[in-house]
Simulated assay, not measured.
Amino acid sequence: MKRLLSFLLIILVTSVFAQKKYYNQAVNSCAGKSSDELIDKCIKDSYLLNYDFTTDESKVISTKDIKRPIVILAAAGWSAPCIGQIPALNEIVDIYHNDIQFIMIFWDKKGKIERFKSKVDSRVLLVPAGDSDKVEKGNLDISGFVHKLDYPTAYLIDKTKKFVDVKRGAVIPSKTVTREEANETNASDLEAFIQQVLK
């Protein structure tokens, strides 16, 4: 009887793990889908594989070693919303840096992210595109992490490495939106976004 129960337990555990979908496979299997379909049907509920990100200071950060929720922000130096969201990001990082690991991956190479480095809170890990990374306007592959959405995009990953949500875009100042209003909206949106993994 013990052997039968052990055998059934092994089959159950194997089938549970076999059903787990991982981020890159999920994204690559959804080629041709709209951004909303990619997020809702492919990214959400997938799991983060281990990625070894090399920061702008040449330090390797392995996602498997991060034991708290993670926010991966995809950014590009040519994107006004990416630059515009920095004050709100800094405000949120100042409050939640002990609870969440913030990682910003870039479309840009190391030499092109200096203006981000001087403005972004130092507790955000900055990961520029390396020489072997694939960088195209509609596709980014940083250390194996594939990004196929617009800029900025924030990926919210819980402690179990499951993708909980994806947030796209940021408010920028305009004729109808002041800088203060944009910062306030961006901070409020980002805080609501990360609250999902802090409950």
Results as ranks from 00 to 15, higher is better:
46 S>N: 07
126 L>I: 09
21 K>S: 13
12 L>D: 05
19 Q>E: 13
177 V>H: 02
142 I>Q: 07
137 K>W: 13
69 P>K: 06
172 I>C: 03
31 A>W: 05
16 V>N: 03
76 A>H: 05
175 K>G: 15
30 C>F: 03
4 L>R: 10
87 P>R: 08
135 V>R: 04
143 S>K: 10
170 A>Q: 08
41 K>L: 12
156 L>F: 02
5 L>P: 03
65 D>Y: 05
79 S>N: 11
99 D>F: 01
100 I>A: 02
191 E>M: 08
148 K>P: 03
159 K>A: 14
176 T>W: 08
104 M>A: 13
97 H>S: 14
63 T>I: 01
99 D>W: 00
185 T>D: 12
193 F>S: 06
171 V>T: 15
171 V>G: 01
78 W>I: 09
95 I>L: 08
112 K>P: 01
189 D>G: 00
102 F>V: 08
122 S>Q: 14
102 F>R: 03
175 K>E: 15
199 K>E: 14
153 T>E: 04
59 K>D: 11
81 P>R: 06
23 Y>K: 03
193 F>D: 08
38 L>V: 09
13 V>C: 12
57 E>S: 15
49 L>M: 11
4 L>H: 04
114 E>F: 03
168 R>A: 04
168 R>Q: 15
1 M>C: 09
192 A>N: 15
42 C>H: 04
155 Y>S: 08
193 F>H: 05
165 D>H: 02
133 D>E: 06
114 E>A: 13
82 C>W: 03
153 T>K: 01
40 D>I: 05
55 T>P: 06
188 S>R: 13
18 A>H: 05
24 N>K: 06
199 K>Y: 09
19 Q>A: 13
35 S>P: 04
184 E>D: 12
33 K>G: 05
45 D>R: 10
71 V>Q: 07
134 K>D: 11
99 D>S: 13
157 I>F: 01
150 D>I: 14
86 I>R: 01
120 V>E: 09
111 G>E: 13
28 N>Q: 12
199 K>Q: 13
48 L>P: 00
164 V>C: 05
191 E>L: 07
66 I>W: 07
66 I>K: 04
19 Q>F: 10
12 L>F: 12
146 V>T: 14
